[in-house]
Every structure is written in C-alpha cells, then in structure tokens.
Design a protein around this nucleic acid. Structure first.
Length: 425
DNA sequence: TCTGGGGTCCTAGGACCC
DNA sequence: TCTGGGGTCCTAGGACCC
C-alpha cells in the first residue's frame, strides 16, 4: 500500500486579508473583522494580532485598544469572503488532483504520488505563489501523511516565518520534533475540555499524546481521540472527502440588533429565518420533515430574567415549501411566546431530510400531493431574489425589520454586485 | 448598554421488546 | 433478603470544528 500525503492550505487572516485586498491604503494598517451584530472580533490582520487584540473578544472590551492604535474595524461581509474563497478554491483545484474544501478558508489537497516527481516543499511554495498571484490572498501550506499532522504542519508554517510559509512533515524525526514543541490543545480535535482531562493524566504536549497507547485512550476517552493519537503517529484514519456530504440539518438563527419585546417583531424575525432556511433547503434539493423553533434572552445579562424555549413539530410529509413551514413556525411561536422578556436571539432548524419523491408515506396517510404550481412558485421566488436582490418576500417577514442585526462598518460587495465594483480613478 | 453563526459526530441512558 | 438479560432504537447532551 502506498502511503498517502496530505497538504493543508489555509488562508492567512482570511477575512482581514479580504478587506485589505480592496483597500490598498490599509496595507500596513491593523485591521479587525467583527462577528454579526458587530459583537466580537472574529479575524485580525497580523498588525492587529501584534497589538494584542485577542480572537473572539467582545468589541466593547477592546474599544479603547482599537481607538488608541487606530485599528480599523469592519463588519462581516460574507458576500465578499464567500466569493474570494471560491477564487482561492478553484485555483487550488487547478493545482492538485483532489481537493477537499474544508471551510471557507481551508482546503486539504491529496498529494499522494506528487513526492515521486518533485520536492514536496517546492510544490507547496508553488501553490503559495500561484494563489497569491491569482487571488491576492496569502496562504500557508502544511504537508504530512495524515490530516491531523498536516494541520500541525500548517500551524508551524504560520508560526515560524523562517519556514517561508511551507512545512513538510514527511519525516518522522521532524514530526516528533514539532510535536514536542506544541501543547496538546493545538492538536486538531483536542478542545478545552479534553485538554483539561489530558493534563490531569500528565499529558501536556502533542508528543506525549502521540506516545500514549491508543487502547488506553480508547478506554478513557473515545474512538475520536483514539483516532487522533493514531493520526499523530502518521497513520491516516481520516480520509480526504472531495464531495460535500449532503447536509443533515439547516439552521438559521441570529442575535437581534436590539432586544425584542414585541410579539409581532418576533413573528417577523422567525418568518425571515424560515424563509432563509427553506431557500437553503431548496438549494440542497432536499425536503425536510422536522421543524424546530427556538428563542431566548441573553445568557450574559444578569439583570434580565432568563428564558429559553424550543419546540419542534413533524410534518406529515416532507416539504420545502416556505409557506408550509411559515404556518407551522407561527404555531410553535404561539406555544412558546411569553410576554415581558427581552429576547436576544431566535432561530429555526430544519432536519430529517429526504430526496424529493423518495419519502414513503404510511399505509393510512393521506397520499402526497406535490402541486407543480407550488414548486414553480418557490423556484420563481428564488430566481428573482438571487438575480435582482431581495424583491419578493412574505408579508410576515415585515418590511422594516427593526430587529435585524447591526452591521455599521460594512465594506462594499466589491466582487459580487455591479453597483459596488471598486472604481479606478 | 454592548458577548456570532452554522455545523458534525459520539455516547450514555431510557424506552421498549422478547 | 434475594426479582433476568440482551438487543435495538431514539434522544439529549456533550464535545469538537471553523
């Protein structure tokens, strides 16, 4: 059996890099990107990292720091990031035979066999140069015989500049050298909770974890952690998956820009989320049978009384018709709504998916009637809204949407909207 | 005052059956 | 006193990821 080789390509400070791309005036300026509602810092340029802005901190806690150093903040601009991501990914697809898009800013490449004809580090450098040239985005490349090791190689490439942004961990000696340097929580799949439990067993570094017997780990933790141990030893247990798996659930939820206390506003918000979720469901060419709706007050406030509720309902037959889910969602809301709370967030979830036409009704169920006109109506809505911007929506979604999220620092949709193309003067 | 959103997988435990 | 045992299915919750 030939041994496999993976590369992990990860964009550097992706959201911040996207924002800088169209603002050459900010090339050397510290930049941060904020989460929805401008709530937390979710990305930082290297200058901002140097100034000590931590990942995930609430903005109000670092407002002074931002001001003091002239750090420029942006609201999340997903239209821009998704488009730039596609450009990076299609560049990678032209360079490697098999690519797994792992997240908006990361991809695994299958480099099995590449090492016979060329130096793997050279190959990594070529990937870096090409992506930089084609998209303006800088990436780091980690190469190793398992995904978990490739992740760590990438981490090393990002951390140590002398590597030139590419680390090849093919040799066992180099693997062990790196593992000895890294704390166990840097390992892919080892989060805060597992780190604590591992430390109690005296396992502090990635190397110590790698050197623990898989059977012991299986006994005290789970198969997942056992797999991680094997992967750290260069045994590939997690395969490359080119095809995006079909989704098992679709969630649409948002924290509100301002707290909701009025039921009519909540109806609008839920309607909006239903409409988004159903649109996604149709894009997946799936139908769903299960709907859940939830709402809650802020978990951070100790002043407001806490309230959180969630309810589900199962349809008789799967559907992807927005109107069907809207009606059910309003019933669920009626059953959960309590006056007097300051609601901070709500959302909907679709689950239990079927391919259209596959669902087997029970013997005594009503026969399924899928009217063609219903399908056409939904299709028309989707087409119109994607071509012309949001032109067609349900009255229950409301027109003003006063509860909608805050995005006060949003950059233009430079690459996806004709009206907002950058101009060269 | 102000704290994101969207996913997956695994496991333990309860319900139920024979 | 001492009240079986094993299998399957489902769900809730926990853990992780970016």
């Amino acid at each position: 059996m030939t041994s496999v080789v993976f590369a992990l390509v990860d964009c550097n400070n992706f959201y911040a890099s996207c924002e800088k791309l169209f603002r050459p005036d900010l090339t050397h300026t510290p930049v941060v990107v904020l989460s929805n509602n401008d709530g937390c810092v979710v990305a930082r340029s290297k200058e901002a990292k140097k100034l000590g802005v931590k990942m995930g901190v609430p903005v109000f806690q670092v407002r002074e720091l931002l001001q003091k150093h002239g750090i420029v903040a942006f609201s999340s601009n997903y239209a821009l990031y998704a488009d730039m991501s596609q450009r990076v990914m299609s560049t990678l697809e032209a360079l490697a035979p098999r690519v797994e898009v792992y997240s908006i800013d990361e991809a695994f490449l299958d480099l099995t066999g590449v090492g016979y004809s060329q130096n793997l580090t050279e190959f990594g450098l070529m990937v870096r140069r090409t992506v930089q040239q084609y998209t303006g985005i800088s990436v780091c490349v980690g190469i190793a015989p398992s995904k978990t090791l490739a992740k760590l190689a990438n981490h090393a490439a990002k951390t140590w500049h002398r590597t030139g942004g590419v680390v090849d961990l093919s040799s066992t000696v180099r693997q062990r050298k790196l593992l000895a340097l890294l704390p166990v929580n840097e390992v892919w799949g080892i989060g805060a909770k597992l780190t604590k439990r591992l430390q109690q067993l005296g396992i502090d570094t990635a190397l110590q974890l790698a050197d623990t017997a898989p059977e012991f780990i299986r006994q005290h933790f789970s198969v997942v952690v056992e797999r991680t141990v094997r992967e750290l030893n260069g045994e590939s247990c997690i395969a490359l998956e080119e095809m995006a798996a079909t989704k098992k659930q679709i969630v649409s939820s948002r924290a509100f820009g301002e707290r909701i206390t009025d039921k009519q506003q909540m109806r609008e918000a839920i309607s909006e989320y239903i409409s988004r979720a159903c649109k996604k469901l149709r894009q997946e060419q799936q139908q769903a049978k299960l709907l859940s709706v939830f709402l809650r007050t802020s978990p951070f406030s100790d002043k407001d009384a806490p309230y959180s509720a969630s309810k589900s309902i199962e349809l008789d037959t799967p559907s992807n018709d927005t109107r069907v889910f809207l009606a059910k969602a309003m019933q669920l809301l009626d059953a959960m709504w309590v006056n007097g709370y300051r609601y901070a967030k709500a959302g909907v979830m679709l689950a239990d998916f079927y391919d259209p036409g596959v669902y087997q009704p029970g013997l005594f169920d009503e026969p399924i009637v899928q009217r063609e006109t219903d399908q056409k109506l939904m299709q028309l809505m989707d087409t119109l809204n994607s071509k012309q911007g949001k032109t067609l929506w349900f009255a229950s979604q409301g027109t003003k949407q006063e509860w909608s999220m805050k995005r006060e620092l949003l950059s233009p949709a430079y690459t996806t909207d004709w009206q907002q193309l950058p101009l060269v003067k």
